[in-house]
Design a protein around this nucleic acid. Structure first.
Lengths: 180, 180
DNA sequence: AGCACCATGTAACACGTTACATGATTTA
DNA sequence: TAAATCATGTAACGTGTTACATGGTGCT
């Protein structure tokens, strides 16, 4: 049982999904390619933590809809309150920042400007997602025992992070301007 | 040439280091084990991006002090202004948050409380690091062409992130208290 | 006509972690 | 005397990415 396995369980305990859907839903907190997801779903099914139902579709390929079992739910629940291993952040941009003194000021500026723009886009998109969630689920997003609660907390955290990145970029850019 | 290779170059362009030192210095922006670092240093040396000098020490084991070559410096510089691949964040805690609606409110509270404490410690440590840097290098930390500039920007960003995590934890804990 | 989306899977490879291996000095 | 620090390396294994493979529908 690795972290990705628990990530899948934590998605499926909310609602049954296909591997394809899981890949998209996972994006917020645990990016994985389908080549990693499909075999793992099969493995978890083999261990009795998941079951699946084959659903035939017209004008679309067949799909496997996975659901969590009682055993899977229990395994997940037990894991939640165990200590989490420390987060891993790998951001190439930060390597570049570290060595930024090597490049011209205008290149540095451009780098931070592009970074800011990327995060501005992310913020716009994230705000939209949160708005939709609030519209769809109303006050239940604040309800601890509601299935959307965790997702809501996460989206809020992501938004905060993305906005924070912009603040940092702005701060660095004022520094770059000062010493002109 | 992978990201870790550039991370090593970006450290060595500031000053010559041993593999052992690199491992510690890298911690801020690219965590890696020594088992990954040592072979890679050897490989980069073989490619002419680094050179090393064996230094004998009394009362300590011998060490290899690596330095960047002109070629290595050029390779790094060219890479810096190329587009960075998107950051990868893997945080088990976020998986647990996603499924937090499964556990009792008090367990949830405890989880966020511990998380907050972890980050409170990190903030203290980080502030100390920044203070030391400002004391050691003075105004040069603001100077774009100074070798500490990138490191300073990074430490400031890390501090911001860690403080932000605490803000989020506090927000979530007020939510948990409200619906008592 | 070509691309994007839906949908699932395997194989090869790259990257990262844990364990094995060694060994002196300093600190608690 | 036990643990931490300095110091380097390899081997085995686990995780993650890229590429290979297939195929229909809908949009531009």
């Amino acid at each position: 049982m690795n972290a990705l396995a628990y990530a899948l369980l934590s998605m499926l305990v909310r609602k049954s999904c296909t591997g394809y859907e899981l890949k998209e839903l996972l994006e917020v907190f645990w990016q994985a390619k389908h080549s990693q997801i499909y075999p793992l779903l099969a493995k978890l099914e083999g261990e009795g933590l998941l079951t699946y139902e084959r659903v035939e579709q017209s004008s679309k390929p067949d799909k496997k809809v996975y659901s969590i079992t009682e055993k899977g739910r229990q395994v997940l629940k037990d894991w939640i309150s165990s200590p989490a291993s420390p987060p891993v952040i790998r951001d190439e941009f930060l390597i570049k920042v570290y060595a930024i003194w090597l490049v011209d000021k205008q290149i540095a500026k451009q780098m931070f400007d592009e970074r800011k723009e990327t995060y501005r886009q992310k913020v716009l998109y994230r705000k939209e997602e949160i708005k939709l969630m609030e519209q769809e689920f109303g006050d239940t997003v604040w309800d601890i025992s509601s299935r959307v609660f965790g997702r809501y907390l996460l989206f809020k955290r992501k938004l905060q992070q993305e906005e924070d990145e912009i603040v940092w970029c702005d701060w660095v850019m004022t520094l770059l301007d000062k010493s002109n």
